Amino acid sequence: MVIPVHDVNPARRTPWVTYALLAADIVVFVALTPGALGSLTGGSDLADLCRLQAFLDRYAAVPRELIHHRMPDLVPTGGTGVGPQGPGCVIGPPGYDKSPELSVLTAMFLHGGWLHLLGNMLFLWIFGNNVEDRMGHVRFLLFYLVCGYAASYGFALSDAGSGEPLIGASGAVAGVLGAYLVLYPKARVWVLVPFLIFLPLRLPAWIVLGLWFVLQAVYSSGQGVTDAGTVAYVAHVVGFVVGMLLAWPLKPGTPPPPEPRGVLFGRRAR
């Protein structure tokens, strides 16, 4: 797996929506997600985990809730207690009303850990500005949300009985990657390739993003990974395909990226 670092494809205008999405994701994780700072320092305890479970159950998208449009009778309350199996999280009747449709929106700004957050933000930072530049601010925001909704419902249809919370911007960000592949397939992307050490290479976007998509498709079938049940690879695949389809009408009028000769990480080499 290659790690993208920078693309040689400057935007013509400031990507305000991309910046706002980045800021919102970071603020929600750091300031609102229970135990986020404790997970960084290793200070999380059972109480933090129970509060996090209750928080995610309330604001995350749950596949069976999306498909059947109803909440379960019992949900985590955020408290801790001691049961027959020892200490654990307390469950009880929900003390709130939850809209499954709105939960898809709130779930896009929730993340399960620092690596989950930073991975999504890295891809959005690198590829979001050019897609926003081509679409315009308002259309890009609508595009981002549509891809996120399509990815969530696509995953829910593939696993309608699941009660596991579905969180993260991955589906919407995958849509951004699909759009970038359609609009700027020849743009050069600096990546780090782990081979004994991290080797910097400059590759065409169609190789970087095409490889990413193939891996997600393979992983979505459960092949080659042991955590296929905890990562919504199907959502990544759906978001990517929807992003490609929505961006396709814009391809004819898209100016090509600049030639990368003599350019190193966005600056002209001397």
Score class of each variant (00 low, 15 high):
residue 255 P to V: 04
residue 209 L to F: 11
residue 131 V to T: 10
residue 139 R to V: 09
residue 147 C to F: 02
residue 228 A to L: 03
residue 49 L to S: 12
residue 1 M to R: 11
residue 137 H to I: 01
residue 105 L to P: 02
residue 127 F to H: 01
residue 21 L to C: 09
residue 131 V to D: 03
residue 227 D to E: 14
residue 232 A to K: 14
residue 23 A to I: 10
residue 107 A to F: 05
residue 5 V to R: 07
residue 125 W to Q: 07
residue 217 A to F: 15
residue 265 F to H: 01
residue 65 E to W: 00
residue 152 S to I: 02
residue 68 H to K: 09
residue 78 G to V: 08
residue 235 A to V: 08
residue 2 V to R: 12
residue 93 P to K: 08
residue 115 L to Y: 11
residue 253 G to V: 12
residue 210 G to N: 04
residue 230 T to L: 12
residue 31 A to R: 10
residue 66 L to C: 06
residue 166 L to D: 13
residue 125 W to L: 11
residue 243 G to N: 00
residue 48 D to I: 03
residue 84 P to F: 11
residue 73 D to E: 15
residue 75 V to R: 12
residue 39 S to Q: 15
residue 60 A to Y: 12
residue 187 A to Q: 03
residue 233 Y to L: 03
residue 43 G to M: 10
residue 38 G to Q: 11
residue 244 M to G: 15
residue 44 S to A: 13
residue 39 S to T: 15
residue 29 F to H: 05
residue 25 D to P: 00
residue 190 W to G: 05
residue 17 V to T: 12
residue 88 G to T: 04
residue 40 L to W: 04
residue 133 D to Y: 03
residue 194 P to K: 06
residue 219 Y to A: 15
residue 88 G to I: 11
residue 8 V to I: 14
residue 46 L to A: 11
residue 198 F to L: 15
residue 123 F to R: 11
residue 39 S to V: 06
residue 119 G to W: 04
residue 136 G to F: 03
residue 108 M to W: 05
residue 143 F to W: 02
residue 96 Y to E: 05
residue 17 V to D: 06
residue 157 L to C: 04
residue 266 G to C: 07
residue 79 G to I: 00
residue 136 G to K: 02
residue 33 T to H: 07
residue 270 R to P: 10
residue 227 D to V: 13
residue 172 A to T: 05
residue 214 V to H: 00
residue 112 G to Q: 08
residue 92 G to A: 06
residue 54 A to S: 15
residue 262 G to A: 01
residue 165 P to G: 05
residue 163 G to P: 04
residue 141 L to W: 12
residue 159 D to A: 14
residue 217 A to Q: 04
residue 101 E to L: 12
residue 202 R to E: 07
residue 142 L to A: 14
residue 52 L to Y: 13
residue 1 M to L: 14
residue 213 F to P: 10
residue 148 G to D: 06
residue 243 G to V: 01
residue 83 G to N: 06
residue 146 V to C: 02
residue 20 A to S: 12
residue 225 V to F: 08
residue 136 G to D: 05
residue 191 V to L: 07
residue 114 W to H: 07
residue 131 V to W: 02
residue 155 F to Q: 13
residue 187 A to D: 07
residue 90 V to C: 03
residue 151 A to P: 02
residue 42 G to C: 01
residue 189 V to Y: 02
residue 211 L to E: 13
residue 235 A to L: 10
residue 95 G to D: 05
residue 202 R to W: 00
residue 110 L to D: 11
residue 169 A to G: 05
residue 192 L to D: 07
residue 74 L to C: 04
residue 52 L to H: 11
residue 168 G to E: 04
residue 161 G to V: 00
residue 50 C to Q: 11
residue 190 W to K: 03
residue 36 A to R: 09
residue 90 V to D: 10
residue 50 C to E: 09
residue 223 Q to M: 14
residue 223 Q to S: 11
residue 193 V to A: 09
residue 25 D to R: 09
residue 264 L to C: 07
residue 156 A to K: 08
residue 202 R to V: 09
residue 32 L to G: 05
residue 244 M to Y: 02
residue 171 G to K: 01
residue 120 N to C: 13
residue 36 A to M: 08
